[in-house]
């Protein structure tokens, strides 16, 4: 018996999910951040964020098709974290690192928070 592992399968699946997002195929929720709107797949959001996992496993909230985030959330920070969820790449612009980290805290993305902490400490002169 043999087993063939396609080592790039996970990244290929994620790329296709991101293609579906950009074509708005089977997206099932709109995330409202201040005045900006982001379409996404609930399952991807739940897989990446503790906050969305809690929201969409709540039987009263899982059928919602629009979620407004706290007004303190920075739309640019959220956009970068949503891109990370669908690409595994976290873009860290100097001017946005705190917004990204605070948004990751809000979204309960602890591993991203830890990584941002380490990045900030390592880049402190």
């Amino acid at each position: 018996d043999s087993c063939i592992q396609f080592t790039r399968h996970a990244s290929d699946v994620l790329l296709n999910l991101n293609r579906l997002r950009s074509r708005d195929i089977l997206t099932d929720v709109t995330i409202l951040v201040s005045r900006q709107q982001f379409r996404a797949h609930k399952t991807v959001l739940m897989a990446c964020s503790g906050l969305f996992y809690t929201i969409f496993t709540d039987s009263l909230k899982c059928s919602l098709n629009a979620i407004s985030l706290d007004p303190k959330v920075d739309p640019e920070g959220f956009a970068i974290l949503l891109e990370f969820m669908y690409t595994s790449r976290l873009t860290l612009k100097e001017s946005l690192i705190m917004a990204i980290m605070n948004t990751a805290i809000y979204l309960q993305m602890d591993h991203v928070v830890d990584t941002c902490h380490r990045f900030i400490k390592s880049s402190d002169p």
Binding site: C48, G50, Y53, T57, M85, R89, T91, D110, H111, V112
Partner: peptide, 21 residues
């Protein structure tokens, strides 16, 4: 992502969804 300094993070990136609640 050309021209951007890319740092490879080998650690866990996201939470793990429990097998059951």
């Amino acid at each position: 992502y050309e021209g951007v300094n890319t740092i490879k993070e080998m650690g866990r990136s996201i939470h793990e969804i429990p097998r059951q609640e």
